[in-house]
Write a protein that binds this DNA or RNA. Structure first.
Length: 657
DNA sequence: GCAAGGTC
């Protein structure tokens, strides 16, 4: 029998797949803690009956560094890093893993790669292939195409091997090279030129294609808060009492910024005296159950409801995953595969003291197939509980909170939308339309297991009939002011990063932590302070019209960003430090077409990576084109370093130099 | 002493 070497991206996949294919024996690998070799026999369609060794790596194996002549910061001008040779080598603590692959590849007939089916997975696949081919050039190299680790799906993937997608791997290679060259060049440039101004210690002033846009979002919001100018608006309110129930009607126009116009309308209403019901509609309504859980959503909910920042939530989720309680926590997928046996997962939760009864109801006929979102990373299912664990068995309260959230979210996905009845009443009064809305929740359904959503009945509205006329009990003209938006919160920051393609689900939390570590931003509990004691930034001017926003543009009052609650929510808000503001403003003032603080560059990069995958661009096209673009930005920045220094002096008056 | 991306 021939020997087939299978290699997955991580130990959990190797274990799961091996056990689906056969009763595999686990063998330890010398010098590696997590990686195991699973040994078994299997009859492949392509290779026939074979001895199989199923092992894995741990993500990327290779690292990319500048050659030794360039590693010292004073060895060269940072601009040379645009062309300096890059050396690839096996990461030190992955040497034993590489050795294992070499040993197993020597006697093998084929290499069957089982890395995740995403771009990075494709690139990791080529790393594995290169290591294996060096010791055994005659290997038949194939990869498995799979999007979850359900048995039937895995067996199908084993039966239909495909080729590695060189294009996807090339797209990643381009990203790696550009991130390294640009990150290192700009970081050295900034640090060497500005470090002595802000600190005596050797602090790094780093640039990264994800760090800077992340900082840019924080600074952008900061200036919107600072430059906010409240505007006064006027509106009409109508109140009527019927059957001893007070009904408040809202003006269909919302509010206007023109006092005279509102006054005229108001007088017209008063003259009309009588209001007339033009429409009274009762209709069934529903509140949709949540979508299956993705990483980004987990991180947002963590900040909002679990009192943990995104990095903490991910750490806890990873622990729960390694212990076997929840599925893989890094996923973009918000749809469950049709073939997945969700009922058996619900069944396991029946024994819980808090949500067990709800799970039982689902088992007794209330189960509904989850909604499907529009994302699928083709590698992992949505985050869900895989096993039941009693609370006492979990390490600490954080683990309990995250596990509970994952379970409740999952059970909510498997139940029915909440149902209610909405009532809309419209009245015409002096030519204007006023509306009252009521809601009665009829069946809470998923809400019973998912307290993170709120949907409550309003007061019962009295009965009105179309055509009915009444003299309103009260009509008022009032005014109000638009309110400033709040500082950026973590869930908002994560959303911005997500929609702008800054970082991946697995790395967004790291970028946020990084800009804190670099002291570009700081956090504090939301509502913890008023303007004036807002931490880092001491002085600002109103000169940033482009970034500023006024209430009118954003929809004015009631824009949802009203003053924060009393600071007991546990939500953190992000405020840039003087250094963070100075860097962003400094770069903006350098007068580049392509500001480094804006997310466009990263977006552009994503598009170019897709072009490589689609075959409409090549790796070297993309690398060279970007290097030329950024080389110009770099040269201009170096020339205009005084502009950056001026910005630093402006915000950090005590700066040296 | 630099980046971002995997994963433990």
């Amino acid at each position: 029998m021939g020997k087939i070497l299978c290699v997955a991206e991580k130990p959990s996949i190797a274990k799961a797949v091996a056990n689906h294919l056969a009763r595999a024996q686990a063998r330890n690998v010398n010098g590696v803690t997590y990686v195991k070799n699973y040994v078994f026999d299997y009859n492949f369609t392509r290779w026939g009956a074979s001895n199989v060794v199923f092992t894995s790596v741990l993500g990327h194996i290779k690292q990319h560094e500048f050659g030794p002549r360039y590693t010292s910061w004073n060895s060269c001008d940072p601009s040379e890093l645009f062309d300096a040779p890059i050396v690839n080598s096996v990461v030190d603590d992955k040497k034993a893993i590489a050795r294992n692959i070499e040993e197993q590849a020597r006697g093998a007939q084929a290499l069957f790669i089982w890395t995740d089916c995403d771009r990075e997975g494709e690139h990791i696949g080529t790393e594995i292939r290169d290591i294996a081919l060096r010791v055994n050039p005659r290997l038949d190299v194939k990869r498995a195409r799979f999007s979850n680790i359900e048995r039937a799906h895995v067996i199908n993937a084993a039966t239909n091997p495909v080729s590695l997608d060189e294009k996807q791997a090339n797209a990643v290679a381009a990203r790696i090279e550009l991130d390294l060259r640009l990150g290192a060049a700009f970081t050295r440039l900034q640090t060497l030129a500005l470090q002595s101004m802000i600190s005596q210690e050797h602090k790094i002033i780093s640039y990264g294609s994800c760090q800077f846009p992340t900082l840019g979002f924080v600074v952008d919001r900061y200036f919107r808060v600072k430059n906010f100018v409240p505007e006064t608006f006027w509106l009409l309110k109508l109140m009527h009492e019927k059957n001893n129930i007070k009904v408040n009607f809202n003006w269909k126009r919302g509010h206007l910024f023109d006092r005279m116009a509102v006054t005229i309308i108001f007088e017209r209403c008063l003259e009309a005296k009588m209001a007339r019901v033009t429409s009274m509609q009762k209709k069934p309504t529903s509140k949709w159950k949540p979508l299956p859980l993705t990483t980004v959503e987990l991180q947002k909910m963590g900040s909002r409801f679990l009192r943990m920042d995104s990095q903490r939530v991910m750490k806890v989720a990873e622990d729960l995953y390694t212990k076997g309680w929840i599925s893989y926590p890094r996923t973009e997928t918000d749809q469950f595969d049709k073939g997945m046996d969700l009922r058996s997962l619900v069944e396991k939760q029946q024994q819980d003291a808090s949500w067990g009864a709800f799970a039982q109801n689902l088992m007794n006929g209330q189960f509904r197939q989850p909604r499907s979102g529009r994302h699928n990373d083709q590698a992992h299912p949505p985050i869900h509980p895989v096993n039941f664990v009693v609370r006492a068995q979990l390490q600490n309260d954080e683990e309990r909170r995250v596990y509970e959230f994952v379970v409740r979210r999952f059970l909510a996905c498997c139940s029915e939308d909440a149902l209610g009845e909405s009532t809309n009443i419209e009245v015409e009064y002096g030519g204007e339309i006023f509306r009252a809305r009521g809601l009665i929740v009829i069946q809470r359904n998923y809400l019973d297991v998912y307290p993170y959503d709120k949907w409550d009945s309003s007061q019962q509205l009295p009965r009105f009939d179309v055509g009915e006329a009444f003299a309103p009990k009260e009509v008022q003209m009032t005014d109000g002011n638009t309110t400033a938006p709040g500082y950026l919160t973590e869930p908002e920051l994560i959303s911005l990063m997500d929609v702008n393609g800054i970082g991946t689900d697995a790395t967004m939390a790291e970028h946020i932590a990084k800009i804190k570590e670099r002291e570009y931003v700081m956090t504090r509990p939301k509502g913890g302070g008023r303007a004036g004691d807002d931490g880092g930034v001491r002085s600002t001017t109103g000169s940033r019209g482009g970034r500023g926003g006024t209430g009118r543009g954003r929809g004015g009052a009631g824009s949802g960003n009203a003053a924060p609650a009393a600071g007991n929510s546990g939500i953190q808000e992000f405020i840039p430090t003087t250094l963070g503001v100075a860097l962003i403003e400094g770069y903006d003032n350098v007068g580049l077409d392509t500001s480094l603080s804006k997310p466009f560059l990263r977006k552009e990069m994503e598009l170019q990576m897709r072009a490589i995958c689609a075959g409409t661009a090549t790796r070297s096209d993309v690398v060279h084109q970007n290097l030329e673009l950024y080389r110009a930005v770099f040269m201009r920045t170096a020339q205009q370093m005084n502009v950056l220094k001026t910005a630093i002096r402006k915000y950090i008056p005590q700066a040296n130099g």
